[in-house]
Simulated scan of single mutants.
Amino acid sequence: MRLSDIKRILSATVLCGEDHLDREVFSACGSDFMSDVLAFVKNQALLLTGLVNPQVVRTADMVEMKCIIFVRGKIPGRDILALAEERDIVIMTCPKRMYEACGLLYSNGLRGNCDGNE
C-alpha cells in the first residue's frame, strides 16, 4: 500500500516527507511503547503511535520504518519533525484513535507482523 493511500484512508495530514508519498509499505504496527516496538517489530514499514517525543523517531529509524503516523490529532514539535527529515522518515498526523486507524488500515489490506506469526 502506498503512503498516499494511507493518507487518504486515515484522512491524515503530512507534516514532513510529502515528496515520499509514493513509497510502498507492506505492514504496520501500532504502539505507544517504544520498548515493544524494539522488542517485537521486525521489517515493519509504518508505525502508528500517540506518543510524541524524539524517541519515537529514533526507534522508528532503528527498525527502518518509512513512516510514523501520530494518532488522535497529535502534532509533534519542530525538533521531532527535523529529526524525522534528517532520517528520511515521513511524518503524518491523523484525527482518529489508534484502534480505529489500525482497523481501517487492516480492513483495507495492510497487515501487521509484530510478533512474526502472521
Score class of each variant (00 low, 15 high):
A45P: 09
G50I: 08
V63E: 02
T49R: 03
L47S: 04
R78T: 13
G50N: 05
R58S: 15
A39V: 07
I69F: 09
G50R: 06
F40Q: 06
G73Y: 13
K42D: 13
I75N: 11
R58C: 10
V63S: 06
V41K: 01
A45C: 14
I75T: 13
L46R: 09
V57N: 03
V37E: 00
V57C: 02
M34E: 05
N53A: 07
L46F: 06
F40C: 04
E64L: 13
P76T: 03
L51N: 11
A82W: 01
L46V: 07
K66M: 14
N43S: 13
V52K: 09
G73V: 09
D36S: 02
M65H: 11
V41T: 07
M65Q: 14
Q55W: 12
A60W: 00
K42N: 15
P54D: 10
L48E: 07
L47V: 05
F40I: 09
A60Q: 02
R78W: 10
R72L: 12
M65A: 10
K42W: 15
L46T: 07
G73D: 13
M34S: 06
E64V: 11
Q55F: 09
L46A: 08
Q44S: 10
D79I: 08
N53Q: 10
V52N: 05
T59I: 00
D61L: 08
D79N: 12
L51T: 14
Q55C: 08
M34F: 07
P76S: 05
G73I: 08
L51K: 08
